Amino acid sequence: MDRAPRVILLIAFLLCISPGAKRSEGARIFTMINYCKTTIWPAVTPGENFGGGGFALKAGQSIVFTAPVGWSGRIWARTGCDFDSAGNGSCQTGACGSSLKCGASGKPPATLAEFTLAALDFYDVSLVDGFNLPVTVTPVNAQQGGKNCSAAGCDRDLRTDCPAELAVREGGRTVACRSACDVFDTDQYCCRGVFGNAATCQPTFYSKKFKDACPTAYSYAYDDPSSIFTCAAADYIITFCGNRKQTVCTYHNNRLICSGTSRSSSNISTWIVLLISSLIGSWLWV
């Protein structure tokens, strides 16, 4: 499918989303957007507020959830899945057992978006468990407060130059990149034993490679200074295969909120223009 139909598909889908996005006091709106060229299966734990913890998201589609303050969890994408009508099946990457709806963490390697919602929200994107898809977290509509309340994540496709010893290959192509800890299982790579603190656990050749490609994502366990972000009462847009610098939008109390602006709009034509502009110039990933 070429880009024009994808733009139309995304607009049509979002126009049909119930702005069930009108949040109660203290809640956070989570918008997930699939900019990849294929269907993905996002997973969330704990998932009670997120469709039971797992669902399909077709290329160009978006979905909105509301989570309460106090929620702490992780979001990731599963790829290459095949589920039957009862929600049983398997995935190439990120599987949480054989269920569509996840009740447990996914199998590495998987790119993780992690959140703790409180008076001050903490969030990050982690490559500590490896990489399977580009993931970006963009806060919008934040109140004053927080440190480095900005876009976090990894928008590079690390599969393209994953070291051979870390690569997960299926059907002749690399579908994910494992962590050095997962592959070599040593105290140094896993930041445990005598390496289990910030003073002794230092970047390695592999974590430096991840960090060079994705400076705002965790590359190893103690990679805190440049990788953890905080916002006060923000809404969050999680994009799969997106770009940290592109404009992304969500609804807040039935009004459109876009990154890079504090102004909202209920004008549908403004919404469509902003949505199209967020897609033009950003190529969808394989």
Rank of each mutant, 00 (worst) to 15 (best):
V7R: 04
V7G: 02
I8Q: 14
L10T: 12
L10F: 04
L14Q: 09
L14W: 05
L15G: 14
L15A: 15
C16S: 14
S18N: 13
P19K: 07
P19S: 10
G20S: 14
G20I: 12
R23L: 10
R23T: 12
G26T: 00
A27V: 04
R28K: 14
F30K: 04
F30D: 03
N34E: 10
Y35P: 03
T39W: 08
W41H: 07
A43H: 02
T45A: 11
T45I: 15
P46V: 01
G47E: 02
F50R: 00
F55N: 00
G60P: 07
S62T: 15
F65K: 04
P68V: 03
P68T: 06
S72D: 03
G73Y: 05
R74L: 01
T79P: 05
G80I: 02
C81G: 07
D82G: 14
D82M: 13
Q92Y: 06
G94N: 03
C96F: 05
S98F: 05
S99N: 09
L100H: 07
K101E: 02
G103N: 08
G106Q: 02
G106H: 01
K107Q: 13
P108C: 02
A110G: 00
L112D: 00
L112S: 00
A113T: 02
F115M: 06
L120H: 01
F122P: 00
D124E: 11
D124V: 05
V125S: 06
S126A: 10
V128S: 05
F131L: 11
L133C: 01
T138S: 09
P139N: 07
N141E: 12
A142D: 01
G145P: 00
G145R: 00
L158Y: 04
R159C: 10
T160D: 11
D161E: 12
E165R: 12
L166F: 14
G172P: 08
G172V: 09
R173D: 10
R173Y: 13
T174N: 06
C177W: 02
R178Q: 15
R178Y: 08
S179I: 10
C181F: 12
C181V: 13
V183T: 14
F184M: 10
D187R: 00
Y189N: 14
G196I: 09
G196A: 15
A199K: 14
A199E: 15
C214R: 07
P215Q: 06
Y218S: 04
D224Y: 11
D224I: 04
D224M: 03
P225E: 13
I228H: 05
I228E: 07
F229K: 03
A232L: 02
A232N: 11
D235Q: 04
F240L: 06
C241I: 02
G242P: 04
K245E: 11
K245F: 07
V248T: 09
V248S: 03
H252V: 12
N253S: 11
N253W: 06
N254H: 10
R255T: 10
I257D: 07
I257A: 14
I257F: 07
R263S: 12
S264D: 10
S265A: 08
S265Q: 10
S266M: 09
S266F: 11
T270D: 15
I272T: 12
I272P: 03
I276V: 15
S277W: 00
S277R: 13
G281V: 05
L284T: 13
